[in-house]
Write a protein that binds this DNA or RNA. Structure first.
Lengths: 213, 213
DNA sequence: AAATGTATAAAACAATCGTTTGAATGTCAA
DNA sequence: TTGACATTCAAACGATTGTTTTATACATTT
């Protein structure tokens, strides 16, 4: 194995990631992937054993490391502040997803791949939940709890964090519908508006936790 | 055509709706659908012309009418109140989606079908946006605007409404992940908690619109 | 009763699916 | 140079895809 740059394998992962994100596992054929990667059909089975093996490799070798970069982007933004407030944490969350360290295409692939696994549980869901979502939520909880004025139990806090994730991911996920409804392009302008909006919306939303009922 | 009950056609729509919602358009074959509907493979092409025709029929003959029932459930809950406040509108929105006039299975199918079209634009997206989402958003806008203390431009209000929809739909969509993370069953108990939470979260969120900045 | 139209079924259609085979490459060590 | 290994390729595998054809059963109309 020539390990400094296994070109066919890399091209296959590149195109598989893009096409699986775009059309879903069942929506794309091995031949379409190999055509896009400009290699032979057999390449998939040679390098990854099967179509499913290629799918899992996309998550293990691409998706997981991107999730790590996202989390680091978030943690880094927080680490730069001393005594970060609630709005700092929420703004950092939104920014990490919408303007974070990833390119636009990486971001789109990343979120679509995640989304598909979350709604149609596939072989990669366990990895996503255990290795990415759970540690992420634990981290955010540790950051948020000191900002609250009263004790809040774990589950309630987790639901709030999931709500914030929901808002962020949904604007991404439903992008075709959102842009058509609002008559706006999904450009930098719109993204800035979204980050500001999401931060304000979720900040107020989570203040519900701060109020005695 | 025997029109009082065309049995095969009805069974095909029943099973197609369930299976398209569960596995997506590309994820299910016409043979799996006809097997579930206990009829011949040719039934799909005879009654609907093609697989895609069956898919569109699911949206036109099933999904659209359910969307109407959802909207009526929402409108009816509001109509019962005089001078409905912001929290009334939001609670009615959440309840219509999570505890509304649909059965649990109808609700699951409905939201999954919608979700798939929103994220992978298919032939039914235009219908969803123009005939369902846009009228719905227009209606909610009319209800919310009188509750606000200051003038808010259309787009901002629309973004807030989309955010609320995002929270509601996301808890549905990512149900497999959500229940695993929270270690909870998706039962009546949990649903009540969700409605209460979403209402509180979004109510506070939208209050951002009420405050001078 | 004969003719017509509708609905279902069995069988086959060409096309495409994921996968495997076996030969042709190139690379590097012995 | 030889032998072993890694990689790519064209070709073909059997299975499954959506669709069509042909035949049959039943109902309604003439």
């Amino acid at each position: 194995m020539v390990d400094w740059e296994d070109n066919t394998r890399k091209r296959l992962l590149d195109q598989a990631e893009r096409l699986f994100a775009e059309k879903g596992y069942a929506g794309i054929s091995v031949r379409e992937i190999t055509a896009a990667a400009e290699c032979n059909v057999a390449g998939v089975n040679y390098h990854f054993g099967s179509k499913q093996g290629l799918y899992m490799a996309v998550f293990q070798e691409r998706w997981a490391s991107r999730a790590r970069r996202l989390q680091q982007g978030f943690a880094g933004a927080i680490a730069g502040l001393q005594d970060p407030g609630l709005s700092d944490v929420i703004a950092a969350m939104a920014r990490a997803f919408l303007e974070g360290p990833l390119t636009d295409e990486e971001r789109r692939n990343h979120i679509h791949l995640m989304q598909r696994e979350l709604s149609d549980p596939g072989p990669a869901l366990d990895m996503i939940v255990e290795n990415v979502m759970r540690p992420y939520i634990r981290e955010v909880k540790k950051l948020i709890r000191p900002c609250l004025h009263r004790e809040v139990d774990d589950e309630q806090l987790e639901i709030y964090i999931l709500s914030m994730l929901g808002v962020v991911l949904y604007f991404f996920l439903a992008r075709p519908a959102v842009t058509e409804i609002l008559h706006r392009q999904y450009d930098q302008d719109f993204k800035s508006d979204l980050v500001a909006h999401i931060t304000a919306f979720c900040l107020n939303g989570i203040q519900a936790l701060n109020q005695e009922k």
